[in-house]
Design a protein around this nucleic acid. Structure first.
Lengths: 336, 336
DNA sequence: TTGTAAGCGTTATCAC
DNA sequence: GTGATAACGCTTACAA
């Protein structure tokens, strides 16, 4: 391994001078020496050692991308189209700015804190945090934290999210405007707060604004995978007065749709469906899914921008960015 | 930050002793001292500093997960269902064994080597490497390297892959057995070697074994995204004698299918299609896709197992694991 | 413009 | 059983 000392030895200068050149402190070194050192660095193939740097500088250039949804070991991990998009965008932009991405699953706040200190992590990305989860931890963290799709009032924390409430308000209203009155709602478990709760509230409000009484029996909470959605479809079939379904994810909509179709229901003739996300899938299924569009790459991109700004000491103007959504009309809804 | 020295001070012992306790060298320390130190570690919240450890031990516990398919900046990054599955499985298992996952894009061998030395990386995962790409680099690397879906003869490198050749041989033969003679082949760019090339060869061989002359005009190379697949669909429509299509990816099959259907073609009546991968999507589209199944989570899982074995000094018995594929019959193929 | 020396947190060697 | 001490590669006062 080639070290700074090796470069120093070869060029006949001190380690300090080499370090100065590496860090571009050209004013402290003669042009001639700079030249000499740079060429030695090239020919010897010197590569800075981040461990050493981290140790002395208390900055590791490591950014953590935290996964706190514990993958169920017994079950196949569902492929999440957001995940690969985010990872790629985060890594790409961070890399351009000299940072490194560590992907890490944590199950508890304590694990998180330990991880941070183990590596002297410089910054943290989190997705889908909501009230109380990691709350204490988050507030004690001294490094930049950027949340994605999170609902938590933390002054020291930044967030980029979506008009979740509006999104489902829009999709529900869209259905209402087309004559639907008995509209079911399918989503994963509705927590006390968070993305799903917001979307649910949007659904409720749209109902309310149209003077449609809320019916708890029409709220179908379920996992989003293929098998779980079979049950949702079954329930839906029994709810024969229901003519439309609002969902909080295209994946879920698609999974429900296959089962509905297999059960002899026709979409949108028997039941209209609107999704959420507008992932690639939504154009691929039959009928193509009317859905709420969100710009996932943009979300990732803005999140890194925020991170980079904090990292480089230019506090972003807003601690919160809320992206708008829009409804994409395709063919899974009919007017009645 | 709590250091080993702090623990030493508080407990009235030397840093060496603390280190010994941390590393479970209980024989070198009295039970009493062990107790004392452990409790101090707990109450003070000591967390080992990996940078310091790495520096002195030349082992970082960092495993690199290398992405060498440069995301096109101008284009939205396609969501890759493999990616999230792999990342999750790799991270989960590595974590259980005390390792950390860094995700990193490299564009050149040099970048790769630099990355390795920057962090003293302990092991490397790579997907989709084929002949000559990173060849020199890979052979010079002294740490465990596990490849996924790669075709490269490197003695020092391990690989877990698929029966790619058999997979497409099977899907092509399946079509032939059902009376098809004019069978097109759609895939991303066919390189000199690699997964796609193997699958292409399987297709060719099946044709050959059935004495069907190979027709270059039926080979449709294209990007796999929605828009690119429009062109494939258009070509297919012009090739009016073609009754079936073999593809190397479900995503591609699905994208081609939508355009075919939009163009008035009926699947499988006008054209039969078989996919590859058996991702969740294949059951969601209409008609459900007949495809070649592969066990993606298993692939990831075996790859980590190999890595862990190498890391822990139990060289795996095989340097290559080839998973089998099987054809899943659904409804995108008809007999003629 | 360049160099010396101390120190970051940890581990290994060797002595007691 | 326990503890000095040096060393890992690098940066930063502070000197010269």
């Amino acid at each position: 391994m080639v070290t700074i000392k090796d470069i120093a030895k070869v060029t006949g200068v001190s380690a300090t001078t080499v370090s100065n050149v590496i860090h571009g402190r050209a004013n402290r070194v003669s042009a001639e020496t700079v030249e000499k050192i740079n060429s030695a660095i090239k020919t010897l193939g010197y590569v800075p050692n981040m461990s050493a740097r981290t140790l002395v500088s208390n900055s590791s250039k490591v950014i953590g991308y935290i996964n706190h949804t514990i993958p169920k070991k017994t079950q196949n991990i569902i492929d999440d189209p957001f995940h690969s998009i985010f990872t790629n965008i985060l890594e790409q932009k961070l890399r351009e700015h000299g940072y490194y991405l560590m992907y890490r699953t944590v199950e508890t706040s304590e694990e998180l804190l330990t991880f941070l200190r183990t590596w002297n992590v410089d910054g943290l990305f989190f997705t889908g945090v909501f009230k109380d989860t990691f709350f204490e931890a988050l507030s004690s963290i001294q490094i930049p934290v950027v949340l994605i799709d999170s609902y938590t009032e933390q002054l020291n924390v930044f967030n980029v999210g979506l008009e979740d409430y509006n999104g489902c308000y829009t999709s529900t209203k869209y259905l209402i405007d087309r004559g639907h009155r008995n509209i079911a709602f399918a989503s994963p478990s509705i927590k006390e707060s968070g993305v799903v709760k917001e979307r649910f509230d949007g659904y409720c409000q749209a109902l309310c604004d149209a003077s449609i009484p809320f019916d708890k029996a029409l709220v179908l909470e379920s996992e989003m995978d293929y098998d779980s959605c079979k049950a949702v479809s079954d329930k839906l079939c029994k709810l024969s007065h229901v003519t439309a379904l609002v969902t909080t994810a295209d994946i879920m909509a698609a999974n429900i749709m296959v089962h509905l179709k297999a059960g002899g229901k026709s979409i949108p003739d028997d039941i209209s469906i609107v999704g959420f996300d507008d992932i690639a899938l939504s154009r691929l299924i039959t009928p193509p899914l009317t859905t709420i569009h969100q710009d996932i790459p943009l979300k990732g991109s803005l999140a890194v921008d925020m991170m980079l700004q904090k990292l480089e000491g230019n506090p972003p103007r807003h601690s919160q960015i809320i992206l708008s959504t829009k409804l994409i009309e395709r063919e899974s809804v009919r007017s009645i």
